[in-house]
Design a protein around this nucleic acid. Sequence first.
RNA 1: GGCCCCAUCGUCUAGCGGUUAGGACAUCGGCCUCUCACGCCGGUAACGCGGGUUCAAUUCCCGCUGGGGUCGCCA
Length: 477
Amino acid sequence: MKPRLRFAPSPSGYLHIGGARTALFNWLWARSQGGTFVLRVEDTDQERSSLDSVRAILDALKWLGLDWDEGPEVGGPFGSYFQSERKALYRESVERLIREGKAYRCYCTKEELDRAREALKQQNPKAAFVYPGTCRDRHDEPALPHVVRFKTPRDGSTDFVDKVFGAISTPNHAQQDFVLVRTDGYPLYNLAAVVDDHAMEISLVARGRDHIGNTPQQVLLYNAFGWKAPEFAHLPMMLNAKGEKLSKRHASVSVQDYRERGFSPMGVLNYLVRFGWSFGDQEIFARSELIRVFDWERVNKSDGKFDEKKFADVAFEHLKRDDLTSLDEYVDWVRPFLTARGIENPSNELLHAAVPGIRERARTLVDAASDLEFYFRATPEMDDKARQKFLTAESAPRLKSLSSALAEVTSWTASTLEEAGKRFAEREGLELKHFAQAARVALTGRSASPPLFDVMAVLGREQTLARLARGIELAGA
RNA sequence: GGCCCCAUCGUCUAGCGGUUAGGACAUCGGCCUCUCACGCCGGUAACGCGGGUUCAAUUCCCGCUGGGGUCGCCA
């Protein structure tokens, strides 16, 4: 049997980096097994769900390349893939439970319960409020406003085997009569997830460890319905540097943030996959390789702390290596970042020529755009400090003779230019370092750039000589 | 507090009874060099504690300690 997996985000914000990791693990397993990856939108909370969030989450998943076989936009045999459109199914299911005495209507109001919860908290801040079962055996009056609660068995235990954590057993007395349906008729997470996972024939549910506590409740539901529960795999949590739940207070937590910061999709995925999963000493993976080697055996149990430095390094590795990011991809990806810097329609040819020289020094696409900018401005922006330090009166005559020497070069390539430069240096009794920085500032406006003769080769004869001329002017003044 | 779970360098991790406890990031030196990077070489740095089991425990078991999750008409 080919596995069916799902990612079931609730559309109440952007795609969280932890959510992206959950999606990734599900996707990887589906892809590696020739299974199906389902995307289901859990929008049963009318208050918090929004279409904008749906849009943002789909966009982020697409950007990451986590494509889904069934779900929004693509449809599938088990639709709708929006829970808000599946109310009838939940209603039917829960009515059956009530009929069979496995669930009951509860007429306690939220206000009453909140008050009780509050009162208990006053008495004992650490005590947890447990619904006392007031309506368990109350006379049923379906016309009155009510929620529906599950009639949790008072004794025994609920067990399941987790693919990551192994056997987990929870005594039923530790559970309470949890709510299945709200007063407004909308189902709650546990009910909707179970009904849908069953209806959509999900065979393995992989999600964050913060869900491990309601797995027993879901297993209870599967049993009550007489359905076979799927397999479960819980992933260790991603914590912030202090070991707390990851929040935007301490780091960027949305996928969109990393996209905007100029990380590549695989850079993001690679960091995420190594968080809680390992493959010997290997740190860097291409997408296809990941699909080939991913498995649950190597998923860790212990939580980890999110490390932006490591993340940045992994992302850089992907941008740097052309076996991981092709030149064409790089050019496509960096283009919007150049546009953001005011460079309209950067030439494809120039980009292809210039990118190889900057990719090993630009840690992100944002840096890359910054490093590339001078190529696209006939008069590059001058860094004042660089100019004062290197475009000195002493440098002017040197640049002048260098310029003349270069003007003689007939075949304008990095190696012929370098030869010409070295011959020039020898003739003048100079070393490269005596004029390289001045030339660099003239050509790029900065004191740091790719190797001088590479820059000249990319710039071309005309631009090189024009920029040197301007540098000489600035230096001579 | 109840219930559940976890425990190797600062961080991510390898290790699945016998290793000089390995790699990566970070950090600190150095090399390379026309700058900045990349790259290369090297250093500092970990098995939480206490009991068992065993000829032998980082590894298996128990306890402790520490950490995390959860206890909603959120998901």
